[in-house]
């Protein structure tokens, strides 16, 4: 019985359901950030070798980069629709 992995799994299930059910777009992005943290931790705990750590780091940095791009685009679309 590994309590730690079970706890992270429960957290990621809860956050995944909240990503699916929320209507606001910005709050959906915040929940997605928490889900990325949980999946990176699960990858590092599943593979106990240095290559697993490299995979978790690359996954986390890549997902942060695409979240950055999505938030930037949301700001640009809001500015464009608010002006005209």
């Amino acid at each position: 019985m590994d309590t730690l992995v079970l706890l992270i799994g429960v957290i990621s299930f809860v956050v995944g359901l909240r990503v699916f059910l929320t209507r606001n777009r910005v709050q959906r992005l915040l929940y997605l950030c928490c889900l990325n943290f949980a999946i990176a931790a699960l990858i590092a705990l599943y593979i106990k070798s240095p290559m697993g750590g490299v995979a978790a780091a690359v996954y986390f940095i890549g997902s942060t980069l695409s979240s950055n791009a999505i938030a930037h685009t949301i700001g640009k679309v809001q500015r464009l629709e608010g002006r005209g």
Partner: peptide, 17 residues
């Protein structure tokens, strides 16, 4: 379409896992 792209991101995280 922005909601669709956010959901696609959500799918890709699961795919990598």
């Amino acid at each position: 379409y922005l909601d669709k792209i956010i959901m696609l991101e959500f799918l890709t995280g699961g795919l990598i896992g």
